[in-house]
Each structure stands twice: as structure tokens, then as C-alpha cells.
Design a protein around this nucleic acid. Structure first.
Length: 480
RNA sequence: CGGGGUGUAGCGCAGUUUGGCUAGCGCACCUGCUUUGGGAGCAGGGGGUCGGAGGUUCAAAUCCUCUCACCCCGACCA
């Protein structure tokens, strides 16, 4: 697909995937670096994408009975310390506030690395009776984790996310919630972002610090590496005990609540880039693209007035149904604009020139397949509606096909190592459940257990590392 | 955090080895004219704390010390 003259401003995806990623982030105008290490600006085009993603997910979160709230950015050290495993897990990446103005604080404040602690302390105040349950709250917030290695969207010091925090009266209800959210996420990521995911449970090694267990969604990127796209934690009663969240049940028995937490972040923007992008730049799923259709007028001196009038008329018509941009900049040639909008991943481009006016049509080009057709003026809206649907589906199918082609089953460790070395992707294998095998595989191949399959187990096999018989199938991969 | 690399105009780079005249080039930007169906042409013009701080020197983009940011590889990472 790489052609001379085009896409010369970004690295080749095939030759230098990580450089390509950074180039696309900058050239598509999604984000920019700042003077603070690991902190990026999300520019209007990137933020527009994030807002659409937020909207899609927020709808789903609310449709399942949750309400939004906002909790403080600062967490007193004493609160964070209450759950031992939790604080230990986050300690290396917490940023601390030690001074207010010039006065030293009596107790230092953590800039939230996640909000279980602060929210737990408040739930303890709010929950007294079984009638107060369940509590179903979500918040959209910024998070700070002092990362050593940062990359735009994928791992930044400050990032944006949503985190749900719920409290329930028993184990079953909490587990049901954890799985419900897992499926809300799956539906959102697959339907709106057109990214197929593998869902499963994290091994104890990989689970959230302080959780009973963690469910995860794992996605395959264009370079064969795996990105964790979201997690949903069943916290059991660990945080309830640490933060003293108790209630009186129907039988007047005092009990600890069962809590869950779950999150997805701006990291998903990185996933969209790396799953759908190609040598020409971004490819955005129509559902979340800030601009779904761009209109590019093509005119000569004689035809300028006519063409512009018609283009504006189309814009007004299309704006009623779609997110539309009219590129009427005088200083760029149409060819330049074509390349720029392709870099930015706009799903459909409409070209309107004298020939189109004469034929009562517009020339339409799809970003995903690159094919160009003429759409008669009176069929424009339904035709574009269909196209955007097709593009959304096609992006998903392409990603799905690649995912399926890159899930390899093996019971042979030599083959396992070969796959990691040559092809990457997911490796499906049996695992005995022993942490020692897991760690040894990681040390030797850098592959980790991305998740333990939730699928019905069929038969038995031998642990990929030690050979012991097992019924547990897991997905391995090299993770971002 | 360890090893390596880079930092000079908005972007990409040359100049640094061997200190020396007004710090250059391409693209982008501004003005004018001609252009416009896949990155237009000509002419003129504007833009620099050479990442930052300190030092050596008659003189520093260039040499020395410290520091910051970014990239690659590794370690770490719910």
C-alpha cells in the first residue's frame, strides 16, 4: 500500500511499528508532548475521539443502572495504607503532595492512582442497611501513576479513565456485577471501537492489587503484541474489611459488603490506532470518529461559486444525520487534503466538483477500502448511512480475522518459544496453575498469561512448561 | 532504574571531529500573481535564549561539568 510521495511523513508500519505509532499520534493531530515527562496534551481531534468514546460507554454504564459521581483527587496516606496488598501494589507509582503553599502538610496526600481507598472510606459512611445496597457508582476522572516508561495514550503519567465502584450484599451479586461489566466492556469495545477482544480471568500474579479476582479484556495489536483493554475486579470483602463497610442484613445480622471495581482508560485510543491503522495513517471506526464525513470541494475559477454553494447545501443536509466537516481551505489543493484526511482516519470523503454537479452526484471514497464511487444526489443520505455501517462492520471483521489467525494452540514448549520469537499473537496452552511455571515462561520468553480462558473446558492437556496434566487453558502473549 | 542514541526555526536535518566573519538547507509559514479531480509553480519576505544551567577561552552550536526531555533495548509495572 505504501506509495512514493504519500505517507512520507510517517515511519513504515511494517519496518518500525513503534515509530509509526508515535508518528501517527502526532501527524493525525491526536496529541502532543509537553514539558512534563509522561504528560501529553490531548489535542482537539484526539479529545473529540475520546469524547465520543466516553459517550458510547457512558450510555451503556447508565443503561445498566449506574450513576456518575465525582470523588476527590487527593487521598490521605493513612487511607491508602488500609489495604496492605493494595498499597504495596501501587506504592512505586504514587505521586505525593507534601506541601500546601509553603506549609508542610501534617499528612501527605496521594494523587489518586485509583480510587478504591477514598471511595471505600465514604461507602463506610453511606452504607448502614441492606436497603442501601447495591451502591452502583461510576466516575470519570484523571489518574496519576508515576511510570518509568511512558508512551502517548498507552502509558502516560496522567491519564483519563472511568472507574466504577459498587457495593453488594453478597458474594453472588458482586460476582454477577463483575461479569456484567465485563460484558458491557466487551460489547462497547467490539461494537463501538470495532476491536475484537478475548475475555478471561487474570492469574493471581497479574490480578489487581487487593482483588479477590480480576476479569480482563485483551486485544491483539497490529504488531502482534497484546494490549489489556479493560479490567473488572471482584474485590470480595477485602476492601470492605479494610475500610469497615458494614450493613445490617434482613436478619439483623451485621455483615461486610462485597465490592467490585472496573475501569477503561484513554489507553483505548492507543488500541484504536494500533488495531485499525495502516501505512497511510489512522482509520477510525465511524461510531467514534470525530468527523465521519469530510466534504472536499473541487473547483476552478469558473465553477467556484457554484461548487461552493452546492457543497454547503450538502453539508447542511448531512449535518442532520452525521458528524460532518467541510474543508473549504483555499490554500491547499484537493490532493493535499485527501492525504491529510486519510492520515486522520476520517471514514468517508466526499469530493464535489464541476463534473459531479453536471451529473447530479458526488464522488465518495471509503477510508477502509480506498474504493471510489459516484453516489446520485438523491440517494446520498441512505447510501452514506449504509457505508458508515459497512465500514464499522468491515473494520471489525478485518480485526476479527487477524485475531483468529493469530491464536495458536500448542502443547510443545519449543514451538511456543518459536511462535513468540517469530509471530507473536496469542498462544493458547494448558497451564498447571503453578506460579513457578508462569514466572519461568515470562523470564525465558517475555510472554505472560494474558488471561485464563472462560470457555467451557474440553478435555485435559499438559502444562506447556512442566508437562503436568491440567484442565486449565490460558492465553499467553507479549503485552504492552 | 541500567545500557545506547538524539536534542540547532513549526517539522526534518547539515554544521560539532579540528572553537573564529551575519548559524545554513529542504518542507511549512507570510505577501503577490498564476493554479486546484491524489501532497501545484514563480517571485519576494518573516521566523533562532543552537534543550537548560554553570564553567574554560580574546572568542562556544562546537570543549568541560551538571541537568532536563524524547527515542530504542532491558528491568519494573493492578
Amino acid at each position: 500500500m505504501k506509495e512514493t510521495g504519500f505517507v512520507k511523513e510517517i515511519a513504515s508500519q511494517e519496518e518500525a511499528f513503534s515509530q509509526w505509532y508515535i508518528d501517527v499520534v502526532k501527524k493525525a493531530d491526536l496529541a502532543d508532548y509537553t514539558s512534563v515527562k509522561g504528560c501529553m496534551v490531548i489535542k482537539p481531534y484526539g479529545y473529540g475521539l475520546w469524547e465520543n468514546m466516553q459517550h458510547c460507554l457512558d450510555r451503556r454504564i447508565k443503561a445498566t443502572g449506574h450513576k456518575n459521581a465525582y470523588f476527590p483527587l487527593f487521598i490521605p496516606e493513612s487511607l491508602l495504607k488500609k489495604e496492605a496488598e493494595h498499597v504495596e501494589g501501587f506504592a512505586p507509582e504514587v505521586a505525593w503532595v507534601t506541601h500546601g503553599g509553603s506549609e508542610k502538610l501534617e499528612e501527605r496526600l496521594a494523587v489518586r492512582p485509583t480510587s478504591e481507598a477514598i471511595i471505600g472510606s465514604l461507602y463506610s459512611k453511606w452504607i448502614k442497611s441492606w436497603r442501601d445496597l447495591p451502591v452502583l457508582i461510576n466516575q470519570w476522572a484523571n489518574i496519576v501513576r508515576w511510570e518509568k516508561v511512558t508512551r502517548p495514550f498507552l502509558r502516560t503519567t496522567e491519564f483519563l479513565w472511568q472507574e466504577g465502584h459498587t457495593a453488594h450484599k453478597n458474594r453472588e451479586e458482586a460476582e454477577e456485577e463483575t461479569l456484567k461489566i465485563l460484558n458491557v466492556y466487551k460489547d462497547y469495545i467490539e461494537t463501538d471501537l470495532a476491536i475484537p477482544v478475548i475475555i478471561g480471568r487474570k492469574s493471581d500474579n497479574e490480578k489487581f492489587a487487593g482483588a479477590m479476582h480480576t476479569y480482563t479484556l485483551e486485544a491483539l495489536m497490529g504488531d502482534g503484541k497484546i494490549l489489556q483493554a479493560g479490567t473488572s475486579h471482584n474485590l470480595g470483602q477485602n476492601f470492605a474489611q479494610a475500610f469497615d463497610i458494614r450493613f445490617l442484613d434482613e436478619n439483623q445480622q451485621e455483615q461486610y459488603v462485597w465490592t467490585t471495581s472496573w475501569g477503561t482508560s484513554t489507553r483505548l485510543v492507543g488500541a484504536i490506532i494500533m488495531v485499525h491503522g495502516d501505512e497511510r495513517g489512522l482509520k477510525l471506526p465511524p461510531q467514534v470518529a470525530p468527523t465521519q464525513i469530510v466534504l472536499v470541494p473541487i473547483f476552478f475559477d469558473k465553477s467556484k461559486k457554484e461548487v461552493m454553494e452546492k457543497t454547503r447545501e450538502y453539508k447542511r443536509l448531512l449535518e442532520e444525520k452525521f458528524r460532518v466537516e467541510l474543508d473549504d481551505r483555499d490554500s491547499y489543493t484537493p490532493g493535499w487534503k485527501f492525504n491529510e484526511w486519510e492520515m486522520k482516519g476520517v471514514p468517508v470523503r466526499l469530493e464535489i466538483g464541476p463534473r459531479d454537479l453536471a451529473e447530479k452526484q458526488v464522488t465518495a471514497v471509503r477510508r477502509d477500502k480506498g474504493n471510489k464511487i459516484a453516489i446520485p444526489e438523491n440517494e446520498l443520505v441512505p447510501a452514506l448511512e449504509k457505508w458508515l455501517n459497512d465500514i464499522q462492520n468491515n473494520l471489525y471483521i478485518q480485526a476479527r480475522t487477524r485475531l483468529e489467525e493469530n491464536i495458536r494452540f500448542t502443547e510443545n514448549y519449543e514451538e511456543f518459544k518459536e511462535i513468540i520469537k517469530e509471530k507473536l499473537g496469542f498462544i493458547k496452552a494448558y497451564w498447571c496453575g503453578d506460579e513457578l511455571c508462569e514466572n519461568q515462561i515470562k523470564a525465558e520468553t517475555k510472554a505472560t498469561i494474558r488471561c485464563i480462558s472462560l470457555e467451557e473446558q474440553q478435555g485435559k492437556g499438559k502444562c506447556i512448561f512442566c508437562g503436568k496434566e491440567s484442565t486449565t487453558q490460558v492465553y499467553f502473549g507479549r503485552a504492552y
